[in-house]
Amino acid sequence: MTRRNVAPLAAVLLIASPVIVGVAYTILAALGLRGAGASELTVRHVAAALGGWDTWRGVGWTLATAAVATAVAAAAAFTVALRVQQSPLGRLLAVLPLAVPHVAAALAALLLLSQSGWVSRLTHAAGLTPTPADFPALVYDRFGVSLVLAFAWKEFAYLVLTAVAVLGTLDRASDEVARTLGASARQVFWRITWPQLWRGTSPAVIAAFAFLIGQYEMPALLAPSTPTALPLLIYERSVDPNLLRRGEAYVVALLALTLCAGLIAAHGIWRRRLPGVTR
């Protein structure tokens, strides 16, 4: 460790200290040493949580809904950012969802997309769905359609903000050169603009993905009871009427933390291999 690293390292550790202590506590609680119902060192909670089929089904379901939502949000955000970067009205519209808190967005999704929601009422008025049950189940449904859309709606705004910022820093000279040399607009986009845009926004995309894994309020209002989304599983276990099972909540929490950390680390490694990227 060189001397110039001492001050920065101290600063970083100071800021991260609550989380470090927090993770330490979570590990102790997962091992039965802390928290309600704690008694002695045991791997019972770890075995019960990691051996449970519902845990892994929840992991898979949460990863899948978060991934689809992030993909939808990113695709929409890139498309929109490329088209509205010169339009102040468009930029303002696109970032509006940032102002709406997650609970509020989930409530809106419930009011819009449930089988008796606003969209269903419109299709009813059009004579397409005589009763609520004729409208497809988009809320509390096993594919998490409303959850994915609500996730995507929130993350879309954040990704547009990032994408517009990245597009603003791009060097347009190479576009001109390429066009002069006879490249088509499509070629210019895929060969020049896209790689730069992706490089600039990939940390934000990964951050959105990882964030959605732990988002609680939206699944609490929109997700089905089975499979049980990861944050709901953590909450459910943490208030289990059987105190002896509450330790499992910490195991699932650690699993969620590991997933997030793993995603970020994997992305960091992938990014280091990109030419010309310093961070």
Partner: peptide, 16 residues
């Protein structure tokens, strides 16, 4: 820093 931003609040919150 990225981890601090995205860490599940339900998971990191208990420690905090």
């Amino acid at each position: 820093a990225l981890f601090l931003v995205v860490a599940p609040p339900l998971a990191s919150g208990v420690g905090l």
